[in-house]
């Protein structure tokens, strides 16, 4: 499956390069911008963009939606890598139902990752190298604790980044994803301790406000600082 996946991705990437696809967001920006003449000419000339560079780390440039989408892509890469590892060899104490749901979550995160990869096309950052040395994958406690951390952080990340998104379509897409992450978070929290699905007081470090019934929301710099311990690849942030 993995080889197939790689081949397909290469083919897709090739096709994209060949067609030099233009992201919808960039087009909308162009259509509304005063310098649209130049931008449209660029589109007409099939000019390309490329942010990804696997050799010198990944750069998230928050000057436009590509930066936000790459930020989401980075987080989804992290989550997907974690769940792929868990689902391939779940802790022995996981129940059949838990194994099945972790299988689901794995594919949800893989789907998110691949979606962003395709939506970004040539603007996508490269694959991140992860560092899960702090997680004991044989221990249910360790795995569930890490899963909860990833999901709660993911929710706070999307909630905090939404206001930066300029494209209506991508804003809605981020909204479509974040509620699924919240469903994951609640499910995992309930396994750890039933009834803690929305323990907002415990989420205060992520920006939640229990008294107002508000979930976490963090700016990208704070999220990346927390996520940093799980990522080997250097992530550069500019124009935040």
């Amino acid at each position: 499956m993995k080889n197939n996946e790689l081949i397909t991705q290469d083919e897709l990437q090739e096709e994209r390069l060949f067609n030099s696809s233009l992201g919808r967001r960039s087009f909308l920006q162009f259509a509304g911008a005063s310098a649209a003449g130049i931008a449209l000419m660029a589109a007409g000339c099939r000019k390309d963009r490329n942010y990804g560079d696997m050799n010198t780390g990944a750069t998230l440039d928050f000057k436009d939606d590509f930066g936000v989408l790459n930020y989401a892509y980075a987080l989804e890469q992290l989550e997907a890598a974690f769940y792929v590892k868990v689902a391939s060899a779940p802790p022995s104490t996981f129940t059949t139902a838990q194994k099945a749901y972790f299988q689901d979550i794995q594919f949800h995160e893989v789907a998110h990752r691949e979606f962003f990869k395709n939506a970004l096309g040539t603007a996508a950052i490269g694959s991140l190298e992860v560092d899960f040395s702090s997680i004991d994958f044989t221990s249910a406690t360790s795995v569930l604790g890490a899963a909860m951390a990833f999901e709660d952080l993911g929710v706070a990340a999307y909630n905090g980044a939404g206001v930066r998104i300029k494209s209506t379509d991508y804003l809605v897409l981020a909204g479509k994803i974040v509620s699924v992450e919240a469903r994951h978070a609640a499910y995992i929290r309930d396994i750890i301790s039933n009834g803690t699905f929305a323990d907002l007081a415990s989420l205060a470090p992520l920006g939640a406000v229990n008294a107002s019934g508000l979930d976490g929301a963090l700016t990208p710099d704070k999220v990346l600082a927390i996520a940093g311990k799980y990522v080997k690849t250097k992530i550069n942030v500019i124009n935040l």
């Binding site: 209506t168 974040v178 699905f197």
Partner: peptide
């Protein structure tokens, strides 16, 4: 909440709405 997000685009109120939105999703999950 998801459907109303576009109207709040770029507004600080959006963040608050999203923070409510994901709490509702946690409720739904439970």
């Amino acid at each position: 909440y998801k459907g109303q997000a576009p109207i709040l685009k770029g507004n600080a109120v959006l963040t608050t709405a999203l923070q409510i939105h994901s709490v509702e999703a946690r409720h739904a999950s439970h």
